[in-house]
Design a protein around this nucleic acid. Structure first.
Lengths: 114, 114
DNA sequence: GCGTCATTTCCATTATTCTGGAAATATGGA
DNA sequence: TCCATATTTCCAGAATAATGGAAATGACGC
């Protein structure tokens, strides 16, 4: 649960959410830190602070490449997060209100989206 | 995006996440505030603060019933949140790294969970 | 080794959030 | 009306997070 709270906190900040989204867009290759700071117009210290935050939460990985540090989204962690929310905060696959322990499959005549 | 950040921030706190989970468990009927405070061992002011936070973020609704205020999870909001994360932070339905704009359906021989 | 560029660490400041006691407000019953 | 109970608001103190300048570290080429 601490992990989940940490991941949520990491994303619950506009700058970090934007940075994370950039990294998602960039795919597994990732981006050099500097390019993120450039896109987001952040002074280096601030950028580093936020990237470290995302990193602590396990949402991004980093690797050195030449003189650059490449950051990339850690998809499995996001997968876990979405999984947790779906499992524990939605009672089933689409956040429809269901009876205790009952999955959407068992919902009585509830319209389900594709 | 502000809405998303607000929802994330609301859940990014252990007490509130616990409270929210209780409400999810309780289903659409919801729970009186006092019962949540009891379950979580919170002084009234603290409880009220956190419930108000969840409420501002749109994650819970409240209604007066007799002398009680019943709180309940707002499932559509959580649905939106999960939807946003899946759409914008996962590149497809299961957070698998995919090429830009490509959905999981198009992933080359990627193992998919049921 | 030296200069350059990329990134991080250090540090102080400011801003925001969390906490909970005490008082206020609301509701229903006697 | 008065009392008991439920919840919120008010307030202040404590804790945590965000910001960014300046200096330190690291990596590369010469």
């Amino acid at each position: 649960m601490t992990q989940i709270v940490d991941a949520l906190a990491a994303l619950a900040q506009e700058t970090r959410l934007k940075a994370y989204r950039l990294l998602v867009e960039a795919g597994p290759e990732g981006l050099p830190a500097g390019r993120i700071g450039e896109a987001l117009q952040l002074p280096p210290a601030t950028l580093s602070f936020h990237l470290a935050h995302l990193s602590r939460a396990g949402l991004v990985k980093s690797r050195q490449e030449g003189r650059f540090v490449l950051y990339s989204a850690d998809f499995p962690t996001m997968n876990q997060l979405v999984g947790y929310l779906t499992e524990n905060c939605c009672r089933g696959s689409s956040c429809a209100p269901t009876a205790k322990g009952v999955r959407n499959e068992a919902l009585p005549r509830a319209r389900r989206r594709a």
